[in-house]
Amino acid sequence: MNNGMEEKKFVLMEWADGWREVTPVEADAVGLRKYFVVERVEYYGRLVVERPEDEVPDLVVTDRKPFEVKRVALVGTGASDLEKASLYAEGGRVEHNYDLVSGDGDVGAAVKKEFAEALLAEGLTAADLSGKPAAERREIIGRIAAGMKLVASTKQDDLFDFVEGLLSE
């Protein structure tokens, strides 16, 4: 049969309400083995970021140990410690709400100082680092930051932009 489907194989799933979904699978698929449903409670942390009045707030979502986040900061505006405050339930979803309590210190300055010290331990200054080719600079920043347990949540480029921004101040 030459209908253009020889090299592609698909699974078709059908629901009780008539909904049907097509999903491509490996071209050498030969059959179906089993079907199962996983039931698992998953927790996500959501940090709401204020924007100018009437603008829709920004939202930062984390799936890494959300109950263990202890401090949050919009860099440049100070940090807040998190304190458990209340529960809010809507249907099957429960929100564990936290108060943002003013914490001490400028997290940006602290990270800058910590990074500069780690850089010095390698015999480099911020000026030395900025004079290096981009690829080498990225390698050094990534390595030092990882040693500080400082990582980007989704894109490594965000880490480079953040660190280079701090060092250029």
């Binding site: 959501r46 709401v48 829709v56 707030p57 920004d58 939202l59 979502v61 809507e90």
Partner: peptide, 14 residues
């Protein structure tokens, strides 16, 4: 989904 969550934060509840 992400935008709906942001809108919920603007107005408080769905």
């Amino acid at each position: 989904i992400q935008r709906m969550r942001r809108l919920k934060e603007k107005y408080g509840t769905i």
